[in-house]
Design a binder for these strands. Sequence first.
DNA 1: TGTATACGAAGTGTATACAATGTGAATGCA
DNA 2: TGCATTCACATTGTATACACTTCGTATACA
Lengths: 234, 234
Amino acid sequence: MQPAEKKQTALDSLKNAILTLDLAPGSDLDEAGLCAQYDLSRTPMREVLRQLAGEGYVTLRQNRGAQVSEMSHRSLRAFFIAAPMIYGAILQLAATHRTEPQIADLRTAQEAFRAALTSGTTAARALANNRFHEITGEMADNPFLAPSFNRLLLDHARISMTFYDPRDSAEQRNVDLACRQHDQIIAAITARDTTKAVLLADAHWRLSRDRISQFVMPGGLDLPLGTPPQEARA
Amino acid sequence: MQPAEKKQTALDSLKNAILTLDLAPGSDLDEAGLCAQYDLSRTPMREVLRQLAGEGYVTLRQNRGAQVSEMSHRSLRAFFIAAPMIYGAILQLAATHRTEPQIADLRTAQEAFRAALTSGTTAARALANNRFHEITGEMADNPFLAPSFNRLLLDHARISMTFYDPRDSAEQRNVDLACRQHDQIIAAITARDTTKAVLLADAHWRLSRDRISQFVMPGGLDLPLGTPPQEARA
DNA sequence: TGTATACGAAGTGTATACAATGTGAATGCA
DNA sequence: TGCATTCACATTGTATACACTTCGTATACA
């Protein structure tokens, strides 16, 4: 395997590991360990880490190594604010600028997503879903919106991984609905129907948002309130 | 000077040179030359270039060195589509999340901008204006919108540098108006007036957009049409 | 016993030598 | 003369040795 390929492999592999929470937010990355794992020397591995930093996957600290970028309460709030606007813009532009080969790519990604729904792991689903939306970003073909869109996709995948519970049957229905929305999105984009694309972006976002909200603010358990521990009182 | 400082110097210097068109879009960067210029060896200089690539200043091509990112007709169109939306969102969030020290920074940046208007070069104006808007981006405090916003600011500065004509007195009036709008933006942000912030973002954007449009589509010269050269005919 | 300082190990940043790739000019052949 | 091939040079990519910073620990002192 060529060195350049090994670099690409390391990049893709690390991205996937971060997207699927295989590498936890905030966890430290051992430079030497990664070098051994991907059979690269430190120089190219450090370049990979710089690239990941540029795309928001990791943060680099002076003299203190790389760590997987955090997902905090604050960033979740920022995510909720930014996502609906950017998602709407991307799908609208995708419907305008999509090319035929891109539509083929999108259909392929959707088939992979549907396959992952029935037989894949939670991580495989998240990656397939992420790939679907990445392609819509490529279709939009706007270098000024792309960086924020991709940053949103990263944390969207991670948030979904955090909250997804395969035992919940309501979850199963939601995922099936999301899959059908993907089909509708493909149809709208193919037809260059920008109005419909924006509406679908909104519906798809709300579905995802509500799923997340339910886990952040679950239904009450109807139990008596506890009392705060001594130290926490005023 | 410490190596880390030299890296920062190189990064800042290259950013400024690209923003002010001192380094022309599409021009090749000579790795060895930059190493000599900033007294760095190739390893840290390559990391600087990777960082610049991550922020959209340059593009890296396999085995073919770095080149300053292009500004094409197509990217101008994408810019016009993305800018008003992102700028509005950023100023709205800035009005919500700004802190007192950030307001002080913004006032300082505005003073520098005003000073550059009277005594500075065109490049100094562009950099001061860029800094002002960068601070509004910091105030907005949204890691999902920041990358696109900063990408927009980069090309906004470069487009302004392209089209600015200091001999045009209408330009002078426009710039003075832009400066007054900055004062109003500071006031709205300080007062946490999100509604006004959004309106000002729109007004500020339209002023800039119209300036650019006038240079892209100048008033006709009322002369007869030429004929295409032989080679160009069907 | 608590704190401060010094030492050492681990890990990060940089310099440089070497390998691989791309480019362009020169040469040979049609 | 035109085109293809080859070789040399320039430039980029990688490996590795070395320097520096950080952090943990041990020891000395209060």
